[in-house]
C-alpha cells in the first residue's frame, strides 16, 4: 500500500512517532528510518526510485538543508518527494525549503494522522495514492 517512505530524524522518539503516524494513516507500509542524514543519503543514492521522504532539518552532522542540497546537485530520480518536517516555527525556514526542487511540502511537528491524510491529497503527491 502507498509508496515507500524514508523518515530522517535524529530524535528517537520522533522517529518512532512518525513511523506510527505514517503507518496508521495508511500513508505507507514500507518505511525506512534513519537517525542521521548521511546514511539516509547513501541509501537513497543506491535506491534511486519513487519514494516520499519525511526530513528533519536540525540534525547533528549533515543537516536537512545539506541533505536537500546534495539531493538537488545529484541526478537522482525526479520522483523522490521530500516533505520537510520541522519543529521550527521560523517562517524563514518555510521559505528556504521552497527553493529545493525535491521539496513538495513543509509541515510542523508533531506529525499526526490528520496531517498525513492531508498530505495524501496534496497536489504533488495525490497521484501516488490514486490507485489506493
Amino acid at each position: 500500500m502507498g509508496v515507500p517512505v524514508i523518515i530522517v530524524d535524529d530524535d528517537a522518539a520522533v522517529l518512532f512517532l512518525h513511523e506510527v503516524m505514517v503507518r496508521e494513516s495508511n500513508f505507507a507500509d514500507d518505511i525506512k528510518s534513519f537517525s542521521r542524514a548521511e546514511p539516509a543519503l547513501t541509501y537513497l543514492e543506491a535506491y534511486d526510485s519513487e519514494c516520499v521522504i519525511f526530513l528533519d532539518i536540525n540534525m547533528p552532522g549533515m543537516s536537512g538543508w545539506d541533505f536537500l542540497k546534495r539531493l538537488d546537485d545529484s541526478d537522482l530520480n525526479d520522483d523522490i518527494y521530500v516533505i520537510v518536517v520541522s519543529s521550527s516555527l521560523n517562517s524563514l525556514d518555510r521559505k528556504i525549503a521552497k527553493n529545493y526542487k525535491h521539496v513538495v511540502d513543509f509541515v510542523e511537528k508533531p506529525l499526526n494522522v490528520d496531517v498525513c491524510e492531508r498530505l495524501k491529497k496534496q497536489n504533488s503527491l495525490k497521484h501516488l495514492f490514486a490507485g489506493g
Binding site: 522518539a13 520522533v14 512517532l17 519543529s87 521560523n90 511537528k109 506529525l111
Partner: peptide, 17 residues
C-alpha cells in the same frame, strides 16, 4: 523557534499517540 519547539512537538506527538 528550534530548540524549545523540539521537545514540545515531541510531547504533543506522544500525547496524540
Amino acid at each position: 523557534s528550534h530548540v524549545v519547539r523540539a521537545p514540545v512537538s515531541r510531547l504533543m506527538g506522544i500525547i496524540d499517540l
